[in-house]
Amino acid sequence: MPFAFVLPASREYIDATGAPHSRPVDADRGAALLRSDYERWSRWGLGLLAFLLAGLGLFVALGMIGTIAMLGGVSGVLDVVIIVVAAALAAVGVAVLVALSRSGRRILRAASSRLRSPYTHGGRQRRPAGWIQARSVNFEPRVFARITTASLALLLGVAGVSLVIRDIVAEWTSVSAAVGAVGLLALISGCGQLGGVLRLVSALSEGDPLWARIRSGFRR
């Protein structure tokens, strides 16, 4: 079965995001379906594979170009072939990451609307259990896996940018641009993945009476 960035069952909920009149039970059903779509292991695994392809492709392609520039020319046809193949892998990886990001935002926007709807339009009362749910979701395996890979990507991104800054101050090397590109990719990927988790947690926090009270205080 081919991979789908958005499952067919989710599309009707995405197309009808702004439905505040929905009954709480309908909103819960839609939110659960959309969450299961977004949190699929296949999405996480594909994103990890795409990141590895993009990172490896960028590093090899830019590293080869930097080395060729320092040596003063191409040593053979093999160098060109390696650069082209690596660039193609990087392009495919980045394209998949972009598609995952765009589809993920669509799914989470619809899920967030339905997670909030019972409290904002459905008359459901906020309860202390909402405080626990908004925090315990971070330890659910599919969410925790995304937090872990996002954190590792951010660490890799910071390390890459730091090395580039060091090379700018000290001495530019043949792989400095490659390291910088991979670091930038890691920062963007980490922020995107962590942003999705934060959007989910924010929507679940709608059922937290403490957070609702604090938020209303800021709005005064």
Rank of each mutant, 00 (worst) to 15 (best):
R126W: 00
Q193V: 15
A181V: 01
P209T: 06
G72V: 11
A110H: 03
L108S: 05
A88P: 13
L78A: 15
S113I: 01
G63E: 04
L49E: 08
Q133C: 10
T173H: 13
G47K: 01
L97T: 09
G192Y: 00
L62W: 00
P8N: 05
S113A: 15
V80D: 02
L71W: 08
G192S: 11
L100D: 11
G30D: 11
V201S: 10
L115E: 13
F144M: 12
C191Q: 10
V197D: 04
P2E: 02
S162N: 14
L184A: 06
T173R: 15
P24N: 01
G57A: 01
R23A: 12
I188T: 07
G190S: 06
R213W: 00
G157D: 05
L34C: 05
G45I: 01
Y119L: 07
A32H: 12
G190V: 10
W44C: 15
R124D: 09
A90N: 01
L71Q: 11
D28S: 12
A110Q: 06
E140M: 09
V96P: 13
T67Y: 02
G195W: 03
Y38L: 09
L156V: 08
P118K: 02
V92L: 01
R40D: 13
L89H: 09
R127I: 12
D208C: 02
Q193T: 14
A95D: 12
A181C: 05
N138H: 13
G183L: 00
G217Y: 07
L71T: 10
A91I: 04
L58A: 00
Q125G: 12
H121N: 11
